[in-house]
Amino acid sequence: MKIGVLALQGAVREHVSAIQAGGAEAVVVKKAVQLAELDGLVLPGGESTAMRRLIDRAELLEPLRAFADAGNPMFGTCAGLVLLAKEIEGQEAAHLGVMDITVARNSFGRQVDSFEANLDIQGIDEPFPAVFIRAPHIVHAGEDVEVLCEYGGRIVLAKSGPFLGCSFHPELTGDHRLMQLFLNMVENRELLPTTAHYSKI
């Protein structure tokens, strides 16, 4: 199983370690041609605006959308969640726009408000240590979106068809259970519910 990590900017190395810890092969992705060999893709934490500029200049936007359209699983953390979202509060245009959610950026405040908390996640037994850094959250989730975790009344982890997205940074802790959940999605991709929305884009 080959899992890519979009490596234009951000916490790439940490996701590579998590993928390898889960027994899959990790590929550092900088170019569209690399997508063809992948079974799934991680969009890491970083700065979403910087990543978007680099996606545009590397002509990756359409190839990434096509990758998603083909039903390939994608996992976005923090900035990666913002990249996946169909709508971004206060912004006219989304980025990939493939996951049926609306996100608000920096919605917990500035860096001095960044925090750690233990989360109760649906389907995961013990609390999950989560690091929120200038984090976004999901303000609206579409009908087919499965909310896996809320914190302080805000949706911070959700799954929809082949897409998994979270507000926090599982890559900053040694806890690989969310990555394992994603790797299971990739392994059993034929069982994932297909949703109609991403073909409309």
Binding site: V12, A50, I133
Partner: peptide
């Protein structure tokens, strides 16, 4: 319970800048 200003939160913020200008 949440905790602000931890090493992980402060160092993590810099991790998110990696590869950037």
């Amino acid at each position: 319970m949440s905790e602000k200003g931890t090493d992980r939160v402060k160092r993590g913020m810099a991790e998110m800048q990696k590869g950037g200008v």
